[in-house]
Design a protein around this nucleic acid. Structure first.
Length: 225
DNA sequence: CCAGACGTTGTT
DNA sequence: GTCTGG
DNA sequence: CCAGACGTTGTT
DNA sequence: GTCTGG
């Protein structure tokens, strides 16, 4: 996942930056599973942007070992899965990012692509969140990203993709009272026009590279599109 | 009853 | 091959 | 997701 | 916490 402009996130969502820890609120180019990020949730009458780590750790977990295994939740099964059911009912959120990466090609030579909105605006993905207690008195919020069947654009790369929502859909996803039928509709694959793919530097393949260089368009890979 | 899991993606 | 760390 | 490790003893 | 497997 990427998140380029600090101001963009808060401004597009209409949330004051002051609510966040400025030291942590910086551009990101290579957000990996278990990394700190941000989620949007419904709070009283409005939206709220809060910190959360990628990889859902349930409230009953004794350690963070589940985080890496729960970075995604399948739309088809999350309502029934013990690990996601409650969060699905009570803690649906939106994960903002200006894009996400998918890889293709042989395992020995993985080629990354950056998926983002054609208009360059913020991508809103369906998520679930939950908090757990790493130590007595200390709470940590975590989230997972809901995946669905790949659409026409994604199919050449993968058979799954994140649930991508527009503004209207994002609101409905977060509302506590949205009925199950509506939630199911929201989890359908987004239209192909919702995203475009750009081949980027293989530098992104190492999470240690979290700087603008990972976004450099790859001069060879575009023909793979 | 107790113990142990609780999840998804990937693809040669 | 499979697990862990990021 | 990809990259990189994959281990124990000893003890400063 | 709650479900599944034994």
């Amino acid at each position: 996942m990427t998140y380029h402009e600090a101001a963009l996130l808060a401004e597009e969502l209409g949330v004051p930056v002051e609510e966040l820890d400025r030291a942590e609120f910086r551009p990101r180019y290579n957000i990996a599973p278990t990394d700190p990020h941000y989620i949007v949730r419904i709070r009283d009458e409005g939206r709220e942007l809060v910190a959360a780590r990628w990889g859902l750790v349930n409230s009953w977990a004794k350690d963070a070992s589940m985080a890496a295994r729960q970075i995604n939740a399948r739309a088809e099964t999350l309502a029934a899965r013990p690990a996601f059911r409650e969060a699905y009912q009570k803690r649906r959120c939106v994960v903002p990012a200006d894009g996400f990466y998918e890889w293709t090609g042989p395992k020995s030579d993985r080629q990354p692509f950056w998926f983002h909105r054609p208009d360059g605006r913020l991508l809103l993905m369906a998520g679930l969140y939950e908090s757990w207690q790493p130590k007595p008195g200390e709470w940590q919020r975590t989230f997972t990203i809901v995946t669905t069947t790949a659409n026409e654009l994604m199919a050449p790369f993968h058979d799954r993709m994140p649930v991508v929502l527009d503004e209207e859909q994002a609101s409905r996803w977060m509302f506590k009272t949205t009925p199950p039928e509506t939630l199911h509709r929201l989890m359908e694959p987004p239209p192909a026009r919702a995203l475009i793919a750009t081949a980027v530097s293989k530098r992104v393949n190492s999470v240690a590279n979290d700087d603008p260089s990972v976004m450099t368009p790859d001069p060879v890979a575009p023909r793979l599109l």
